[in-house]
């Protein structure tokens, strides 16, 4: 390669490299607010209130809060993400993030309570269905096992089914939404474009530096 062309290419590559490294750092990713409604709940309002959760009726949420909740329910991932500053004022975004790492299950539960809000759904609301919590099977299993000694079709089993049905109806009205403030996910397009910029910048500096240094 002609020496002057190589020198020019080296200078261009080094300039591209420095820009590739500087731009992502000068324009970093902004924090986002995550809302997840994937867990559901097996408890009713009074039980959740006793556990320390904040229980809010859907009608009492702000318009923004209602929008976010509905969008999260509609999402196939049951998650809705918005830029920081565009969340709902009643959601506890800072409840979990600024308290350091979790040491044990008790702390994890406490952190979960701090970063969640329980939404009491109206009885005849035209809302997408809440998540079916997987723990419900375990919880109902205990009650079924206690009644298993009775013969099928007895009034006791019928009473159990009625009680479980009533409980389902009660708990269906309560939905748990976990919120969190954090950095965008690695698969986010903004994150990937910053990664591309840094990798390109690094490669350009490597190649440009070599071309510039060689005899």
């Amino acid at each position: 390669m002609d020496r002057s062309i190589a020198d020019t290419a080296a200078v261009v590559l080094l300039a591209v490299g420095v820009a590739g490294l500087l731009l992502p750092a000068l324009f970093p990713a902004q924090q986002v607010l995550y809302h997840e409604v994937d867990d559901g709940t097996t408890a009713n309002g009074s039980e959740l209130d006793a556990q320390g959760y904040t229980v809010v009726a859907y009608e009492n949420l702000s318009d923004r809060g209602q929008d976010i909740y509905v969008e999260a329910l509609r999402s196939p991932e049951r998650r809705y993400t918005v830029p920081a500053g565009e969340g709902a004022p009643e959601f506890p975004y800072t409840g979990a993030n600024d308290s350091g790492p979790v040491e044990n299950a008790e702390e994890y539960q406490q952190r979960r309570i701090q970063s969640s809000i329980v939404i009491e759904r109206p009885e005849d609301a035209d809302l997408p269905p809440a998540a079916e919590p997987v723990q419900r099977v375990d919880r109902e299993l205990e009650e079924r096992q206690a009644a298993a000694e009775d013969e099928p079709g007895t009034p006791k089993e019928a009473r159990l089914e009625a009680r479980l049905e009533q409980r389902r109806a009660e708990t269906e009205r309560y939905d748990l939404m976990t919120v969190q403030k954090g950095t965008p996910r690695a698969t986010d397009s903004g994150s990937l474009s910053r990664l591309g910029g840094v990798l390109l910048g690094t490669l350009a500096i490597g190649v440009g530096g070599y071309l510039r240094s060689r005899p």
């Binding site: 950095t183 690094t202 490597g206």
Partner: peptide, 23 residues
């Protein structure tokens, strides 16, 4: 230059993939 570039790419990838949602 090749080794330096590869290692710099490696540390950039580590920094990209490193996350702790609880901190």
């Amino acid at each position: 230059w090749a080794v330096a570039t590869l290692l710099a790419l490696l540390t950039a990838l580590i920094a990209f993939g490193f996350s702790n949602s609880r901190s």
